[in-house]
């Protein structure tokens, strides 16, 4: 049943199989686009409401969170069904963003307690998701995400020099450059690799 094969063929086979396993691009664009559009919408609504008489502009966030979490669970469920194989990369990225969620709630709690100003919270969040985008880009070796992460850091630092209410516009800008643009580029890459 088994055909004999020599050392060169053996090495060739190992290379081929490892390449096949590595070729599975982690489908992440769905999550970047989902959260990108949701956070962009929430930020712009919150910013607009600052100029109205509405007393609770921040109420847009819990709504966005619930929609985002539902979408995230749906996306994870769908990709698990489709995946057939689990990679270390996907697990690492999952841990990274899981950790980000915990940090988000710690900072949110700190800001709600009044220990930090909301503008500082906004800036720290921009820098924090910048870090996650940067590392995710490094893990899947996708440059637009790496650059997106760096752009978010630059925006975070620049936001230290603007009026507090405009930090919402900083979030909007950083979401476009670090979530939406890389998200669409990643989706194009995923579609291209699925049709080869």
């Amino acid at each position: 049943m088994e055909e004999p094969f020599n050392e060169q063929e053996s090495l060739q086979l190992i290379r081929e199989m490892i390449d096949n396993a590595k070729a599975r691009l982690e489908a992440g664009s769905f999550f970047y686009l989902l959260w990108g559009w949701l956070v962009l919408a929430a930020t712009l609504i919150h910013f607009s409401l600052l100029y109205t008489r509405f007393a609770y502009p921040y109420l847009v966030w819990p709504v966005i969170m619930v929609v985002g979490l539902a979408g995230t669970f749906y996306g994870i469920r769908k990709s698990k069904r489709k995946a057939k194989a689990k990679t270390y990369l996907a697990t690492s990225i999952g841990f990274l963003w899981g950790g980000f969620s915990v940090m988000l709630f710690i900072l949110l709690f700190t800001a709600m307690k009044g220990n930090i100003h909301w503008a500082v919270f906004n800036i720290l969040i921009i820098a924090l998701y910048g870090l996650c985008i940067f590392v995710s880009g490094g893990i899947i070796r996708f440059k637009p995400l790496i650059w997106g992460g760096i752009a978010s850091w630059v925006i975070a630092v620049a936001s230290l020099f603007i009026a507090p209410q405009y930090t919402f516009l900083s979030i909007a800008l950083s979401i476009v450059v670090s979530y939406l643009i890389p998200g669409y580029l990643l989706r194009n890459k995923e579609n291209a690799s699925n049709h080869v």
């Binding site: 057939k84 194989a85 689990k86």
Partner: peptide, 27 residues
């Protein structure tokens, strides 16, 4: 390990955290 199919299986699994039977069949 010096068998084409078993070496293929091991080379795939060394790069992955886990793989389903259908994935190994496909590859």
């Amino acid at each position: 390990l010096h068998s084409q199919l078993r070496l293929s299986i091991m080379s795939l699994l060394i790069s992955l955290e886990s793989a389903e039977f259908s994935y190994l069949l496909e590859q």
